[in-house]
Write a protein that binds this DNA or RNA. Structure first.
Length: 340
DNA sequence: AACACAAGCAACCGCATTTGT
DNA sequence: GACAAATGCGGTTGCTTGTGT
């Protein structure tokens, strides 16, 4: 049985905002009926949207002007989209929320055909889902905030750039049961306190799910894990001493995914005004002489992993860091890795 | 089949801002 | 400029629907 309602909706209840209690007591509340919708649409067709209180007085609708406006804006406004959010729209919401916060109306202006209400609902659903799953929120203030450089120095023995471009020695050392790395895929080797399904590198910015881990080298405790490089880790490392711009690495991954799908013009056109810092950094990085190259199909949406290839000259090999992979014991991960 | 619970979404409420007089 | 009404916005509620037991 559902819990007792805190406040039952009643047709005689006093609604908020504007009109007197006497007037409000006559107003109908709750879900709109098809008949009411027809009256509303017909009135707006004849007289246009706006003057909602006049509409309420002249149309015969027993609804407040506010209620009429809300019903129109959220359901009958021209060019409203009815389908679910696309991955592009979802990404835009994440990015814009990171920049603008809970300013739903501002966010909605960047998503034609979408209402602030549905964006707000989408966000709240997303947040609740992540809470239930025990996942962190996207915004930086919800994470431990440290400059990336110091994180790397403390936590990693090798991280991009230079990424560890697998040499033939590494490639040939992979057991046949493991998915094969291609020549141009980048990996990192990091200390890893544990193995199995719950591995985490315990970095504020990077929490690698198991599918990003290709396997482990035993160099003596602790074990070292080999991971595919997320786009953001490749990308952000080129910022030098700069801190990560607003947004988590996952957020940057999502944005790079958008660029991969729709081209860099998309972010220039739609996001430049809202998140200039992040967009500027991306534009700078992607147009610099030693530009990074997004490989086609680097992003696997289902697993959330991807590849981002550095300038070939910036990549070092296992030999260059003196790692003799032939002497290492290779232990496959529990879960197979999806490759593309 | 009946019930309990969770999730998603439409609508409400109160406050802030804008517009009209 | 002062005031009132209209409109817009964001937080919240509670209804509907789906799923598990």
């Amino acid at each position: 049985m559902r819990p007792p309602l805190k406040k039952e909706r009643a047709s005689t209840a006093v609604a908020g905002g504007g009109a007197s209690a006497t007037t409000q007591q006559l107003q109908k509340r709750g879900p709109w009926t098809p008949a009411e919708d027809t009256i509303l649409k017909e009135y707006v067709r004849k007289h246009g949207a706006g003057n909602w209180n006049v509409l309420q007085k002249n149309s015969g609708l027993q609804r407040t002007g506010k209620s009429c406006r809300l019903r129109w804006v959220n359901n009958f406004r021209p060019n409203l989209k009815k389908e679910s959010f696309s991955p592009y729209e979802e990404t835009l919401i994440l990015l814009l929320h990171d920049e603008l916060g809970n300013r739903w109306a501002q966010i909605a202006k960047h998503l034609p055909g979408r209402t602030d209400n549905e964006i707000k609902n989408y966000w709240n659903t997303l947040i609740n889902r992540r809470k239930r799953a025990g996942l962190p929120m996207y915004r930086l203030e919800n994470q431990q905030h440290m400059p990336l450089k110091s994180q790397r120095q403390e936590q990693c023995i090798a991280i991009s750039p230079p990424a560890l471009k697998p040499s033939q020695a590494i490639l040939s050392s992979l057991p046949s049961a493991m998915p094969q790395l291609s020549e141009n895929q980048c990996v990192s080797i990091r200390q890893c306190p544990n193995r199995g399904n719950n591995i985490s590198f315990q970095l504020p910015y990077f929490t690698y799910p198991v599918e990003n881990c290709l396997g482990y080298f035993d160099l003596g405790p602790p074990p070292y894990a080999v991971t595919k490089e997320l786009p953001s880790s490749q990308f952000s490392s080129n910022f030098g001493d700069e801190q990560m711009p607003q947004g988590s690495s996952r957020l940057l991954d999502d944005l790079l995914h958008v660029i991969d799908l729709y081209g860099i013009e998309v972010i220039e056109e739609t996001l430049k005004a809202d998140i200039p810092t992040l967009v500027d950094l991306i534009l700078r990085e992607t147009t610099a002489p030693t530009s990074l190259t997004v490989l086609p199909g680097w992003y696997n949406h289902s697993s959330g992993v991807g590849e981002f290839l550095n300038d070939p000259m910036a990549v070092i090999t296992d030999k260059e860091i003196g790692l003799d992979v032939q002497q290492l014991e290779w232990i496959p991960t529990v879960a197979p890795v999806e490759f593309y």
